[in-house]
Design a protein around this nucleic acid. Structure first.
Lengths: 148, 148
DNA sequence: GGATAATTGTTACTCAAGATAACCATTATC
DNA sequence: GATAATGGTTATCTTGAGTAACAATTATCC
């Protein structure tokens, strides 16, 4: 039984999904332009973000968090290690490869952070704090529904 | 001069951006799983969406709309043409290559639409119509700010 | 306590989707 | 009519992801 209310919802949902897709690509483009100036890419940046905010992590942790497969993170770790931005920490296992930011990695993160913050403020200039908080809450809910 | 209010905003903005990135990837994964059942990918689907809702379009139109370069759309058009989902329409130019959905293309769109709608409803189940509409409005604003 | 299962990570290979650069036709403009 | 702009293509490269198969280590279960 389809009600008028549900019909409206389907249309809004369609529009929402389409907007999300259409928003993401130009957003990632702009982000990558900023990151390229620091010889970084989006995938590396998200790992730096995680390590900066959560201390250290294993490959499996990050791959779960980001919803990608393990080999993807293996490569990202390897590239960040090569750049000297991350290093290994002893885990409780011989299997575990626990990573954390190096001093240089933290410095780079903070440097790039300034650029990204400026970009964020530019993009979100018309958005109020309240809207942003609502937005974040909704996104978290959606993310949980996706992972189910 | 940084006020407390602005400091909060920066933190919200950081979180917002991170959530957007973290949301998008699993979302695209799930979407692609659905689309793969119909031998489609996200990039093709967005073109089908555009043509279904806007009638017909040139390569340049779509590349502007999606914020990607022309060669990307050349390939997407080519693959959709090969599948028999789109066809050329006469434009006002000999240069223009104006595309529209074929009968089959429209049928496929509508068929896939049902699957996608179900997915959308599942993901957005906790979100109200009002929140959705707010969300769409904010995303449109952000998209405009990005394109500047 | 030892066989089996699970976990952590890697390597090799493939693919989607995008970018850039250089180019050809065609149409506009000066 | 020469030059610039527009629409589109081709060739080549890169990022970032996936799958499959595997090795090493640790947990579990009989």
């Amino acid at each position: 039984m389809i009600t008028i209310q549900e019909v409206f919802s389907i249309q809004s949902a369609q529009k929402f999904f389409h907007q999300l897709i259409m928003l993401y690509r130009p957003f990632e483009n702009r982000l990558n332009v900023l990151l390229n100036k620091h010889n970084l890419h989006r995938a590396q940046w998200t790992v730096l973000y995680y390590l900066y905010n959560y201390g250290n992590a294993t490959l499996v942790e990050i791959s779960h968090y980001q919803g990608v497969e393990k080999p993807t993170i293996t490569r990202t770790f390897a590239s960040l290690e090569k750049l000297g931005y991350v290093e290994q920490v002893a885990g409780k296992d011989k299997r575990e490869k626990r990573m954390q930011l190096t001093k240089q990695g933290r410095a780079v993160y903070e440097e790039v952070r300034v650029t990204i913050d400026r970009f964020e403020m530019e993009i979100l200039q018309d958005t109020s704090e309240e809207e942003l908080i609502d937005f974040i809450r909704i996104m978290e809910g959606i993310k949980n529904n996706i992972k189910k």
